[in-house]
Amino acid sequence: KLLSSIEQACDICRLKKLKCSKEKPKCAKCLKNNWECRYSPKTKRSPLTRAHLTEVESRLERLE
């Protein structure tokens, strides 16, 4: 599967780190437990900047 097509777990399953069936409108866990089942939009991760990478590398060197 391509990364862009990976389905996201519902908010509660993601928060509780449960295996989500990803069914809509309610996944199996939410249906069974009568929880409100919501699927928040995916958040875009910002790409690493060179400055951040350099900072992490220098912190790693100090720890070694």
Rank of each mutant, 00 (worst) to 15 (best):
C27A: 11
K44Q: 06
K42E: 03
V56I: 03
L2P: 12
L3R: 14
K29R: 15
W35Y: 09
C27W: 01
K22F: 04
Y39R: 09
L15V: 13
K42V: 07
L48T: 07
E7C: 13
K42A: 07
K19H: 08
R50P: 03
S5C: 14
H52Y: 07
K26H: 09
H52L: 10
T49K: 05
S58N: 15
E36A: 09
N33D: 01
K19Q: 01
L63A: 00
L3P: 15
P25Y: 07
C13L: 06
Q8C: 15
P25C: 02
C10V: 00
R50T: 03
L3C: 13
L2A: 06
L31C: 13
L2W: 10
K26V: 13
H52I: 02
C37K: 01
R45W: 00
E36S: 11
E64S: 05
S4I: 12
T43K: 15
E57Q: 08
E64I: 00
P25G: 03
R45K: 13
I6W: 04
S46K: 00
I6A: 14
K17M: 03
T54W: 07
E23F: 03
L53P: 01
K16Q: 08
E61A: 14
C20G: 04
A51F: 03
E61Y: 13
K22P: 09
L3T: 15
E23T: 10
L48F: 03
E57F: 10
A51V: 05
T54Y: 05
L53I: 00
S58V: 10
K44P: 11
L31P: 02
K1N: 01
I6F: 12
I12D: 08
A51D: 07
S40H: 05
E23V: 09
W35H: 12
I6M: 01
A9L: 10
S46F: 01
E23S: 08
K26W: 04
K16T: 08
T54E: 05
K22E: 06
L15N: 14
L63I: 00
A51W: 12
L3G: 14
S4M: 12
A51N: 03
A28V: 11
S4V: 14
K24P: 04
K16C: 01
H52Q: 00
K24L: 14
P41L: 05
A9S: 14
C30W: 05
H52K: 11
S5G: 15
S46H: 00
C13G: 15
E7G: 14
L63W: 12
T43C: 07
L18A: 12
S40Q: 08
A9R: 09
L48D: 06
P25N: 03
Y39S: 06
R62F: 03
C27F: 02
K24R: 13
C27I: 08
C37M: 03
E7K: 15
S21C: 08
K32Q: 05
K32T: 03
H52S: 07
L48C: 07
C13M: 03
K24Q: 13
T49Y: 07
R14E: 06
C30V: 04
Q8F: 12
E55T: 11
P41D: 03
K22S: 01
A28D: 02
E61L: 09
S46Q: 01
H52N: 07
E23C: 08
S40I: 06
Q8Y: 12
E61M: 13
R38D: 04
R59C: 03
T49G: 07
L60E: 11
P47S: 07
L2Q: 12
N34K: 12
L18Y: 10
E7A: 15
K29A: 06
L60H: 05
E36N: 08
I12T: 15
C13F: 04
K17H: 15
E36I: 12
R14Q: 04
W35T: 11
Q8G: 07
S5Q: 15
N34E: 11
P47H: 09
K19G: 12
K19C: 03
N33C: 06
C10H: 10
R38N: 03
E55N: 12
R50I: 04
H52F: 11
I12Y: 12
E55R: 11
L3I: 14
K32E: 02
S4T: 14
P47G: 06
K44F: 10
K16S: 10
Q8R: 15
Y39M: 01
N33S: 10
S5K: 15
L18P: 03
C37H: 00
S58Q: 13
R62C: 10
Q8N: 11
S21N: 08
E7M: 15
C27Q: 00
T49R: 07
Q8S: 12
S58I: 11
I12V: 13
A28N: 03
N34R: 13
L2H: 12
K16L: 13
N34H: 13
A51M: 07
P41E: 11
R38L: 10
K29M: 02
A51Q: 12
K1P: 10
S21G: 03
L31W: 08
L3H: 14
R38H: 13
R38E: 07
C30F: 04
R62Y: 02
Q8D: 10
S5Y: 14
H52M: 10
N33E: 04
W35Q: 10
L15D: 12
N34G: 14
L48S: 04
P41S: 07
R38I: 10
V56H: 07
K26D: 05
D11P: 10
R50M: 01
T43Y: 13
K24F: 12
W35I: 10
R38V: 13
S4P: 14
C20W: 08
L60G: 05
N33A: 12
